[in-house]
């Protein structure tokens, strides 16, 4: 034990027994947190892991260890295709959301002056509006008799409504991008906001253009926040099942829809659990890889 940690116990001269007692009291005080982690995090996830190694037999769960679910899931063409599609959709939506949110955050921080906070809040307000409503609204907008087709027809751009607007991969990407933008924005905005304005002034005084100030100073400092925003968007979109169910149609089915099926009509919990574990592992591996990129080139403080 280092001197510093002994101080935290407040007992330098105390005998060992006393020190152990103090540590015991501290663990006792922390027990609600330990219980929380045990009951809400560890046990449920351990049971899910267990389920994924069991099998489904005529309405009952056979509690024998097997890797059948995983081999079934990973060998199934449907699951493989959906895994690939879900991954691509999630990456595309998160990238587009980041590409939208970053310039917007930069613009608001640099140019909005005293309207900075209201404008930033306006971007995140949609997060507080019903999630179902945000997704469903796109169905009203993009449907065959929807608002967009109506507008285009009235304007004389098209004669017949375009059917392809709804129920496609692109619709799912658009809707998930819409859902993700505020989260990514939040991450980037708070980071850009913390950068002292003196940085911009100093670079400007040294003759740097706004672009080179951005490229050489602001981007290296804010890149981690952009990556974190991207990662949040990925986690949200990768596991979603509401959006594909509402606006995806057959073309836009995602992995989440399959899990929904296994826990619903197909009633094969172990297989569903195995697919859920695949989602969990893929997101962790991907986020791990991404966080290597997030390593900052420069730090301020």
């Amino acid at each position: 034990m280092s001197a510093a940690s002994e101080w935290s116990g407040g007992a330098i001269e105390e005998p060992l027994g006393e020190r152990a007692k103090a540590a015991g009291i501290r663990v006792g005080l922390a027990s609600p947190a330990l219980l929380w982690v045990l009951l809400i995090v560890l046990i449920p996830n351990a049971i899910m892991l267990l389920y994924s190694f069991w099998t489904n037999g005529l309405g009952t769960i056979i509690q024998e260890f097997t890797t059948k679910n995983y081999s079934q899931a990973l060998q199934s063409n449907v699951v493989r295709a959906l895994l690939q599609r879900t991954f691509l959709i999630a990456v595309a939506a998160s990238l587009i959301a980041t590409a939208i949110a970053y310039p917007l955050a930069y613009l608001i921080v640099r140019r909005a002056g005293r309207y900075k906070l209201p404008l930033a809040l306006l971007v995140v307000v949609p997060l507080w509006v019903s999630y179902l409503m945000r997704v469903f609204a796109w169905k009203i907008i993009l449907g065959e008799k929807g608002v967009l087709n109506g507008l285009l027809q009235q304007a004389g751009v098209i004669d017949h409504p375009i059917k392809a607007l709804l129920y496609s991969k692109v619709t799912v990407i658009l809707t998930l991008t819409y859902v993700a933008v505020p989260y990514v924005f939040l991450s980037i905005f708070t980071a850009l906001e913390r950068l002292p304005t003196a940085l911009y002034d100093a670079a400007g005084d040294c003759g740097a253009s706004e672009w080179s100030t951005f490229r050489d100073i602001i981007w290296p400092l804010s890149r981690p926040a952009a990556v974190i925003g991207f990662a949040i968007a990925f986690v949200i979109t990768f596991g979603d099942y509401v959006t594909p169910a509402l606006v995806g149609g057959l073309q836009g089915t995602m992995l989440g829809s399959i899990i929904l099926q296994e826990f619903g009509t197909a009633n094969n919990w172990p297989l569903g659990a195995a697919i859920a574990m695949v989602i969990l592992v893929v997101s962790f591996v991907f986020l791990g890889a991404v966080s290597l990129l997030a390593r900052t080139e420069a730090v301020i403080d």
Partner: peptide, 9 residues
Amino acid sequence: FLYAPLVVT
């Protein structure tokens, strides 16, 4: 883009 869906609903 952010507000159209809310207004439409």
